[in-house]
Every structure is written in structure tokens, then in C-alpha cells.
Design a protein around this nucleic acid. Structure first.
Lengths: 228, 228
DNA sequence: CGACAGGTTGAGTGAGCTCAAGTCGGGTGG
DNA sequence: CCACCCGACTTGAGCTCACTCAACCTGTCG
């Protein structure tokens, strides 16, 4: 989702050649700022964060190369921050003037992103959410079984409405069951994507074979995609 | 949100004068159907429901008079059902042909609705979610303190990611604390909207005066609106 | 080397779920 | 009219999963 075709991306590049750069952790725009522009990720990863008055944080999306973000009506409902070093292309909405029909696709993408977020938060248990997140992330990062998570446990937790402890525990549990393999905190291999899919869908009954060694025979991941 | 100005509504009425009618509980479209049309509520209430493979239900929105729903890219991600008797106006997206710039506003509305849903699910406790839901619903239904809830407890529960038991208990608790008054299951009065707003924002510390009689001196509700 | 940030793991607690009654109101039929 | 049923709602008791609190590990940086 939020992925532009090469053609679209090229067309947009003509409009604005400026490449903005942000370092890890830098803020791209703040919650509440007037929503004058939207962005396309050239490289790196971006998160959008909504802060509640009590200080707690809800991440409303992660955006990778060729994704777009920052499409909002009046003011930004979430801030945007660089998860890793990031290069961006900026597009002005030109507040006053009517947007071109081109933007329709972009709006649809933003809508899909929001619905993907709802899809994660709509699941009930930690295992379901984490499994769905892993599948969605794998799908977005090209459908490979081996994925590099650019974001911290804290980011994942705030995206899924869990704590870092629960996320960490759940990942360990999935690893113990042999469904995934952890090569360091950021590098995860989906050993049994279809079993993960069962978990994500609430099929907790998958008791698996008792912790067989992480053989990981590359069961293909069906690109859990964000479009249903 | 998702409210059209009188002018917009009138302009649209010219396009299509057909009024569709549905009885309580009837399905307007099903999850997975090709998303060829979108709808405007003339009267009544509509819910959109996403069904997970395990059977559990996530309501992604309630739509009242002048709201629009059913704006999706390819196929409907949620089904739409009549909560009460409903009259609708239908607008074709005309799959193939490009949409008119007019639709941009409608898309923004759909996006706002999705973000409002995230805003509810992003809250952590049952009290926060229920309080936020009551304020949002009051705001949408005209900002009055006395509101008629057309949907069942089950609908509310599936919208907030809770069970009917927890929703019922939470409402009883709020009533016991004097923040709201329950005149039958469907009729609720917000006695202390600002205290509710504190609760919705995580300010659980509001211990209130011990259960004073439901005096309900009509503290104005600040239309918790869906736009931030 | 120590300080520190990010991550993992354990023990105990509590909010919300499950299971199970019980209540209330509306409809239907004898 | 009353008896009965049915669905929606409420409420209680117990349990469970995720949170809280706390310790510990690991790698990085000064």
C-alpha cells in the first residue's frame, strides 16, 4: 500500500526535484501543524505518531521507500518522524487551489493505510496483533521471509497498542515455537508464514510441533498485503 | 465528519434522485463486493462492519443523516448494514472513468472517519473508549447533551473492541458516578461532558463528588468532533 | 572501564474476558 | 388477560492475559 508505480513516481519527480534529508529520530512535521504538504519516501523509514493528552503514543503507520504519507485535510493529526536516516520528496497541496485528480490515488492510499491500522488494532490478542504485523511488514518489504525491522520494540508496541514487554515476550514465544527466527532484535525470519497467518486470524489452536530446530524451509509468504 | 454542506448535498441530489430504503438489520453491501458505489445517509443510521476470519467483528464506523460511506478503492473492506430503518442516496463511482474533483472532499471525509476509529481504538482502557465514544457520538448528533443511541450494546462493543459486558458495566459505572444518566438503554444524557472529556483523555484521577443526584445542569458539550 | 540505551525475562497485579444468572420489555398465543 | 417466550441488557464470580514493577543482559560509546 501507499506504493506508487514507477511511472507515477517518475511523473511526480518532475514536479519537484527537491530531496529532503532527515536523520534518525528527527521530526518531519509535528502534530497540529497546518497540513500543507505530503511526502514520498525515497529511502529509509518514517513513522507517523499521534500523541494523546495523557502522553501515550499511537503510531498510525510505518512508511518505506515509495510510500507516501502526510495526506490530511487541515492540520496534521499525527506527527511524522524519521525511524532511520530518510530521504523524502515533498509535494505541496497548495492549500487554496483545488488538487489535481492525480491526488485521488494518493488519498486512496492514505485511506488504505488507515484501514490497515484499524485491521491491526481490531485484533484482540497480543499474538494475533504481532503475527499480523509481521506478515504485513514482510508483505510491504517485498514479501521476503527474512525481514529487517528498522523500528524499535517501543515503536512496534505503540503501533499495536501493546507494551514493549508484551511485544518482546510474544516474539520470544513465536521464536520458541519455531514460527519465526530472531537474528538479533531487528532481523526476523518468518519460518512458517502460513502458521503465522493462522495465528493472526485467531486460530490459536495451532500447537505446532514441539520447538523443532529453526529449519526455516522458506514457506512462501503470500504477501499479506494491506489491500484486502 | 462525513457531513456534506447543504449546498453539496443539493448538488449531488441532482445527479441521482433515487432513494434506497433498507429496514433495520438489512445488508446494504457485503464485505468483498466490488466497490462500485458510495452512499449518503438521508435518514437513519448505518454501520460498517469488518469480519475477521475467526468470526469476530470490528465495526469501522456509524453513519447518520448527511454522512457518506462506502468510499473504497477496489472491493468493500467492510460490509454496510442498516442499524435502524434507513433511506440512502447512491452515487456511482463509475469504476473505469476518472472521478470528479468533487470526490476529493468525500475521500477526505472517509479518511477522517477511519482516523476517528483509530482514535477510539488507540485508547487503552474501557472507560477512556466509552467516554470518547459518547462524546464523539454526541458531537455528531448535534452536540446536545441528551443523545439517543440507535445502536445496540453489541454494536458499541464491536466498535470499541470490548465485550457487551464491559460496555454495560462501564456505562453503569459512569452513571453511578453521576457523569451520565441512563433513561433506558438507548437514551443517555451527558451530565458532565468536561469530566467525560478528562476520562477520555486518560485523566482517570477525576474522582468526582460521591454520586450526587443526576442534576444534569447541561454543561455544554464542546462537540468532540472527529476533526482534531 | 563505567554509563547508558535497548532489549529480554520473571513475579505479581488488575482490567477486561468468560461463564452463568437474573432482569426487563415486547410480542404472541391460549 | 395472563402465561410464555425471546432478545437485549445488566450484574456477579472467577479466571486470564497483558500490564506494572523490577532485575538482568547485551552492545555501544565516551
Amino acid at each position: 500500500m501507499l506504493r506508487l508505480s514507477g511511472q507515477q513516481a517518475k511523473a511526480r519527480a518532475r514536479v519537484s526535484e527537491t530531496i529532503l534529508k532527515f536523520r534518525k529520530g528527527e521530526i518531519i512535521y509535528a502534530q497540529g501543524d497546518p497540513a500543507t504538504d505530503w511526502f514520498e519516501v525515497v529511502s529509509g523509514t518514517v513513522r507517523t505518531c499521534h500523541l494523546y493528552p495523557d502522553g501515550h503514543r499511537q503510531l498510525t503507520g510505518f512508511f518505506y521507500a515509495n510510500d507516501v504519507f502526510g495526506i490530511e485535510s487541515k492540520s496534521y493529526r499525527s506527527s511524522a518522524e524519521a525511524v532511520s536516516a530518510v530521504r523524502l520528496r515533498r509535494y505541496g497541496c497548495g492549500l487554496g487551489r483545488p488538487e489535481t485528480p492525480k491526488s485521488l490515488g494518493v488519498l486512496h492510499n492514505a485511506l488504505n493505510n488507515a484501514q490497515a491500522c484499524i485491521s491491526l488494532l481490531g485484533r484482540r490478542t497480543a499474538t494475533e496483533r504481532v503475527a499480523a504485523f509481521l506478515l504485513a511488514t514482510s508483505g510491504r518489504l517485498g514479501g521476503r521471509n527474512s525481514i529487517h525491522l528498522p523500528m524499535s520494540r517501543s515503536d512496534i508496541a505503540d503501533h499495536l497498542g501493546l507494551t514493549i514487554h508484551t511485544v518482546s515476550r510474544t516474539l520470544s514465544e513465536l521464536s520458541r515455537r519455531g514460527l519465526i527466527a530472531l537474528d538479533g532484535p531487528q532481523s526476523i525470519t518468518l519460518c512458517m508464514p502460513s502458521a503465522l497467518r493462522l495465528l493472526a486470524e485467531g486460530g490459536e489452536e495451532y500447537t505446532s510441533h514441539p520447538v523443532q530446530a529453526p529449519n526455516c524451509l522458506a514457506e512462501p509468504v503470500l504477501s499479506y498485503g494491506v489491500q484486502p
